[in-house]
Design a protein around this nucleic acid. Structure first.
Length: 421
RNA sequence: GGAGGGAUGGCUGAGCGGUUGAAAGCGGCGGUCUUGAAAACCGUUGUGGGGUCACACCCACCGGGGGUUCGAAUCCCUCUCCCUCCGCCA
């Protein structure tokens, strides 16, 4: 949520932002709604004030055994008027809040202009040493040949867009998770193992609801959803920890299996384990002083890149342009790993600064050194998506003899240095 | 699953129909004292909204929602969550 006063005081800025995001939202309507709300709130407060003092007077009069019938009538009438005004205010407030929740975050001024994905500039590139081989096998071929991925078995159990790993495949996948968590722990992130189910409220606070509600799995008959990312429990947990300036930045790493319906991506990446309903991800989250969020974003980016560097995987860094930026983000970098089997780069991490957008939604403030309460800034980064990293290892470490080498850094975790052969 | 008990400010915990936004203690902040610190003493200290250049001031909030009443933290209903005991269980 953005500051509602911005709509009144700096409507041009908000309007420009919407234009950059190609969103068509009627700001005048929101402005009217805000003003209407304020006016009615003022009226209501005055009525309540009157009632309060009259009620006190009533108490005194009755104690003094004075006649109270005129006052009773007056108060009854006042109460009725207050009820009516409250009802109207509730309505207008709900309407106002609904509209405000539809507004995306303000874009950071450093973000490049562009219409969509195709305009995202590549800002750093560490390409593979050699040219891609035309008939390089992909993870689907490799997984089946080496008997470490069973796609049809997974379909039998859970349907399409699920995957089942076995033997060394399952162990490599687990090793990647442990490796990542250890790296981040060494860098000072507080490791968190969160619940994989979440009540609705935390999802609203971090902005998945309503923006991405159709992508969430809901537990029938209960107020519980499967989390689409550990960002939800981690950021919300950050607030629970009650930050003050001496504890910032608060850096957490969290593992969670993530569940997404992938609604709206029918036909996209249907083969393989690139886009599945259930995937593991190590997430990084920072809660910081508002002055430091840009700097922190670079720190998170570096933390995520460290994993790719340690695994010696080719990758590039892309910055999302204005037209491709997510709802809550002021600025986003994507890390894309090279997948020689697909002959293209694929996203393994998304690093976003959501500035005070989530903080406002959840009323997440900290006590600054001057004693004032201010909104924190929140950031999140994948560090990294485990399944896609697994794919990248298979495809990049494939040898011409059909085997797959294990990256040096992972060998202490897998206990073997090779799959197949 | 069965039987009870509870939810009050950063924390502990009083209040159980009117002047209580809420005692007291702890913690936090400021000060006196001290070479410095501790202790002691004095003062101060909830959140959100409206309002203001900033104050002042006004309103709301005692787990959520609803009700009774002129008036509710206090009474009634309901939901949620937590705790204790028993059963079951990775």
């Amino acid at each position: 949520m953005i500051d509602q006063n911005l709509i009144i005081e700096n409507k041009d800025l908000v309007q420009k932002n919407l234009k950059l995001r190609k969103k068509d939202i009627d700001l005048d309507r929101i402005e009217n709604s805000i003003n209407g709300f304020k006016k009615l709130k003022f009226e209501l407060d005055n009525l309540r004030s009157k009632k309060k003092s009259s009620s006190k007077e009533f108490g005194k009069k009755r104690a003094a055994k004075e006649d109270v019938s005129a006052l009773t009538k007056e108060l009854e009438a006042l109460s009725q008027e207050i009820d009516r005004t409250e009802a109207r205010l509730d309505e207008i407030q709900k309407e106002k809040n609904d509209m405000l929740l539809q507004l995306p975050n303000l874009i950071h001024e450093s973000v490049p202009r562009g219409a969509g994905e195709e305009d995202n500039p590549v800002i750093a590139e560490y390409p593979p040493a050699s040219e891609p081989d035309e008939d390089h096998p992909d993870h689907i071929d490799l997984g089946e040949e080496l008997d470490i991925i069973d796609f049809t078995g997974a379909v039998e159990l859970a349907g399409s867009r699920f995957v089942l790993l076995q033997g060394k495949g399952a162990r490599l996948h687990r090793a990647i998770t442990s490796f990542m968590l250890d790296m981040h722990a060494k860098a000072g992130f507080l490791e968190i193992y969160p619940p994989f189910l979440s009540r609705k409220e935390p999802l609203e606070k971090t902005g998945q609801i309503p923006d991405k509600e159709e992508d969430l799995y809901k537990i029938e008959g209960e107020d519980l959803y499967l989390v689409p990312t550990a960002e939800v429990p981690l950021i919300n947990y950050g607030k629970y920890l009650k930050a003050d300036h001496s504890r910032l930045p608060l850096r957490m790493s969290g593992f969670s299996t993530s569940f997404r319906k992938e609604a709206g991506s029918y036909g996209k990446d249907i083969r393989g384990m690139i886009r599945v309903h259930q995937f593991d991800k190590v997430e990084l989250v920072s809660i910081v002083h508002p002055d430091n969020s840009s700097e922190e974003m670079e720190f998170l980016r570096n933390s995520a890149e460290n994993i790719l560097r340690a695994l010696e995987l080719p990758y590039r860094v892309v910055e999302l342009c204005t037209g491709d930026l997510g709802f809550t983000a002021a600025k986003t970098y994507d890390l894309e790993v090279w997948m020689p089997g697909q002959k293209r780069y694929r996203e393994v991490s998304s690093i976003s600064n959501t500035t005070d957008f989530q903080a406002r939604r959840m009323n997440f403030k900290f006590k600054d050194i001057d004693g004032k309460k201010k909104f924190v800034h929140t950031l999140n980064a994948s560090g990294l998506a485990v399944g896609r990293t697994f794919i990248a290892v298979l495809e990049n470490y494939w040898n011409a003899d059909g085997t797959i080498s294990i990256p040096q850094a992972l060998q202490p975790y897998t206990g073997f240095d090779k799959i197949g052969g």
